[in-house]
Design a protein around this nucleic acid. Structure first.
Length: 296
DNA sequence: CCCTTCTGTATTACCAAGGC
DNA sequence: GCCTTGGTAATACAGAAGGG
């Protein structure tokens, strides 16, 4: 949003263009070249030899600081928008973002930065509760309005996360009848106990889950979530087990966070507690999906 | 127990709609 | 007409489940 290309009234301010030119020149000018700095200075419009050298020193300094661990890698407090929390940062950095001034060498926005050097975020598994809230939100707002769903239902997830989750969810739905499948959280297709599943609604235009939205999930992997090992989830009967005796932990009534309408970006204190098991007569929801085309 | 396959999350790129 | 915003598709990667 305009942070780039600031007019350099004061010559020690570097525009991105200058920075870029500097980086390029630095890269292409042999280190042993006697007139290296002159060449670089030539390549960077508006900068003197002194400034180039100074800038380089700062750069080296920065890098060594980072490497020595003295400087925590900036989380680039983004220019704003992100009222979102940590997790959310995926939220909407989008491509335009690109805030890091000189991107710390290695990654020039050039797309695929080898992530090997940059720990890929691990990802936080969706809990069944979140997934149910997601379904509720889906039911209420329909496909596409991830923002609202995130805001009013799955408050612990950003719209991007919701969308991503939805993407896989629908894909899963689509391949409902592939015989060999592992159980997954996406097997939960309804919020309540019910046999009501989303089945009827080919959301992505899928031909649909024959198994009546076959469902049941067991999601053995909700490792992290301090849900007291105890039966927070009732045993259930959601749909039919897919390919085996899945003991499902699904189908627990979910309590809507609802009315609260939490400020966007404020995380629910803990995702878990939100669902205390208070029943919500939510059984039998039918999905009245607006057609995918709804938005557009 | 090890290897393979599959799932889930995050990230990036592209595209379309809306606002100015 | 351009810029911003938001959604979808595609892809990368890590980890767990499943099978031998």
């Amino acid at each position: 949003m305009s942070t780039d290309e600031e007019p350099t009234s004061y010559s020690s301010l570097w525009t991105r263009g200058q920075d870029k030119a500097f980086e390029n020149a630095l890269a292409f000018t042999p280190e042993d070249s006697s007139d290296r700095w002159e060449k670089i200075a030539e390549a960077v419009p508006g900068k003197t030899l002194e400034e180039i050298k100074y800038h380089y020193e700062l750069l080296v300094d920065d890098i060594s600081s980072i490497e020595s661990g003295r400087v925590p890698l900036p989380c680039y407090v983004s220019s704003s928008e992100d009222t979102m929390d940590g997790v959310g940062e995926s939220g909407s950095t989008k491509k335009r973002g690109h805030i890091g001034h000189f991107d710390n060498d290695s990654n020039h926005g050039g797309g695929k930065v080898s992530r090997s050097d940059q720990e890929r975020r691990k990802g936080i598994a969706w809990t069944e509760d979140e997934h149910r809230l997601f379904l509720l939100g889906l039911e209420k707002y329909g496909k596409g309005d991830w923002r609202s769903i995130s805001r009013n239902f799955v408050v612990s997830r950003t719209p991007t996360q919701v969308a991503s989750h939805a993407q896989k969810y629908f894909i899963r739905l689509n391949s409902m009848n592939k015989d060999r499948r592992r159980s997954s959280i996406h097997d939960i297709t309804s919020v309540g106990n019910g046999d009501v599943a989303v089945s009827q609604g080919p959301i992505t235009g899928q031909t649909n889950g024959p198994t009546g939205g076959g469902s049941s999930g067991k999601s053995t992997r909700q490792q992290h979530h301090p849900t007291p090992a105890g039966p927070v989830y009732g045993t259930t009967t959601v749909g039919q087990p897919i390919g085996g005796p899945l003991i499902s932990a699904v189908g627990t009534p979910v309590s809507l966070p609802a009315q609260g309408h939490m400020a966007y970006g404020v995380r629910a204190p803990v995702p878990g507690p939100m669902v205390t098991g208070s029943p919500t007569s939510m059984a039998g929801m039918t999905y009245s999906m607006p057609h995918a085309s709804a938005h557009r």
